[in-house]
Design a protein around this nucleic acid. Structure first.
Lengths: 328, 328
DNA sequence: ATGAAAGCGCTAACAG
DNA sequence: CTGTTAGCGCTTTCAT
């Protein structure tokens, strides 16, 4: 089925069929109906390649995820994908998935230049990843998750880490914890940095300068290892903020193994409210970031940027919520 | 940068440049070099839409995942994606992600017909989903995960469920368990069916006809609920096969709450060896299915099918392995 | 409001 | 082995 055939059936020109198909307003109502009938009887579907060739729009965007190792066991994957999908689906735009790897950056750039991709959503990019800056410089549509590590005029979506960590501090202090520590995220990630400084600042505001800090890496195993070190370093610990739920899950099993009761002996608060939070024993008190909404917003920002290249970059910061469960 | 410009720079015709770019063998070595130089100096990248228009290849395949609810908390997502990606990446084919929803089937069909997609990989399709049959009938390239629920000439990749469940039965019996039960998957899934009948048959072969069966739904909560029922129904239980690791994780916390020690009082074996297996306490003895390899194989089968439409459908069944950890 | 015609950038016969 | 030519199916001026 091509435009020509439909035109023949409807007894009009190709151009008219094209107008009807694309919903151009200036078409006679009667003709429109005739054409629409012809479209349904022929079962016509426009060829995307032909359309792309002239419109210079691929009709697809990429979602670039961190390499497999960093994504393994990460419970956000599904939420991110469904958030983006929910937005993209209605506009008929395809979501192409890429996992970061040695040659991913070049691929992305090439695909964008080949007109195979209209824009990109970058998830948890590496510190010092040159891709964001390269895209910005080439004026290619891009949105990233989390603020860029260096000042850069790029659109991004983030959660208010300061507000989130302040809630944690408040909760722990109000609970009466005396000896408080934190297992931070990796220092070479913006989320890791922001959650650490945010928590420390908030504790300081509460008059607590003696917070013990141990660095983790956002993985379950890393969380477990960090908790072991923490127990050695501060045996009298009675409250801990762990910068990700996944790490908290690992830490919790270490605590159990050491016979420390949660929350009676030690109060534990996580961050993320990912699916592992409820899988924890006891269920984890944590800070929820609305990941799905955030992902949807990234898609919206990107689509807008693709639509009109003159829109200024914008960042939207979501407010987190404290979810109180059994662990603190 | 178009072919024309490169041709002008190299002083040859468009056709020749096209041949060089596409690696056609019958090109003079000298000219090839000249053209290659021209390509790099101009930074030429072929326009995909134009190419697709004439080759009638979209250069992308879709990965259709179950709706979000069934995917939530499922640890296979990342493995499936990276398995497929690893194969697809080298061939430059794009992986388009879709989550099943009310209108997904029509979208998939339309995209295939519009030449926007070359083929489809279907993950965990619903029982009675009309899509597989529709695709087969339309002779469109498709590969699914797990055997089709009804006889259908379709390519698929599966794990040898019979062999896997036989290993579980063997392990439990050898361990000396007397009172054995199973928490099955949903009866309206082939994996659920196969693991149940496989396990029952194997137990029967060991002379055990008295296996208690409780139906689960492959979710963590479903596993927990099923274990509660099981404890009521068979309080003297000392061994249980749980048809998925995720359910086993839920079941384990129920067991802990009831003061049943694992594996001392009750031996627990799961199935999948997904990331939750090691997150269990104690770590879960389970059956590993090589999900990533299986996903890669699906991609390979699909690509082959796209390449030449005359290849017969084929199914490849992977052998599972028993992974012994702390729970049994 | 509609049609004719000119491409979009590429591949693939077909000559030469 | 290389060049010429004819489209692939669509959108979009530009006339009418």
């Amino acid at each position: 089925m091509t435009l020509d055939e439909v035109a023949r059936v409807a007894g009009v020109s190709r151009a008219t069929v094209s107008r009807v198909v694309n919903g151009v307003a200036t078409v006679d109502e009667g003709i429109r109906r005739t054409v629409e009938r012809a479209v349904t009887t022929t079962g016509y579907l426009p060829n995307r390649a032909a359309r792309s060739l002239v419109t210079r729009r691929a009709g697809s965007i990429a979602l670039v995820l961190p390499e497999q190792s960093r994504m393994m066991g990460d419970p956000f994957f599904v939420q991110i994908v469904s958030g983006v999908t929910s937005v993209v689906r209605s506009s008929g735009v395809h979501l192409v998935l890429m996992m970061a790897g040695s040659d991913t950056n070049e691929h992305v750039l090439a695909d964008l230049r080949q007109g195979r991709l209209d824009g990109v959503i970058l998830i948890y990019t590496h510190f010092d990843d040159p891709l964001p800056a390269a895209l910005v410089e080439a004026r290619l549509p891009v949105v990233m998750s989390g603020r860029p590590d260096r000042p850069l005029s790029i659109s991004y979506v983030d959660v208010n880490q300061i507000a989130g960590t302040a809630m944690v501090a408040e909760h722990l202090v109000t609970r009466g914890c005396q000896r408080i520590a934190t297992i931070s995220g990796p220092a070479d990630s913006t989320a890791g940095q922001d959650r650490l400084t945010g928590f420390l600042d908030a504790m300081f505001a509460h008059g607590r300068r003696d917070v013990v800090v141990v660095e983790g890496d956002f993985t379950r195993e890393g969380g477990a290892a960090a908790m072991e070190r923490l127990l050695l370093q501060a045996p009298d610990l009675d409250g801990v903020f762990i910068a990700s739920d996944l790490m908290a899950h690992g830490a919790l099993s270490v605590l159990r193994r050491h016979g420390r009761r949660v929350p009676e002996d030690i109060a534990v608060v996580g961050f993320d409210d990912s699916s592992v939070a409820v899988a924890c024993d006891p269920p984890l008190t944590t800070i929820r970031q609305p990941v799905e909404d955030m992902a949807a917003e990234m898609a919206r920002l990107l689509l807008r940027q693709i639509e009109r290249s003159d829109v200024p970059t914008s960042s939207v910061v979501f407010e987190p919520t404290l979810i109180v469960r059994g662990s603190a």
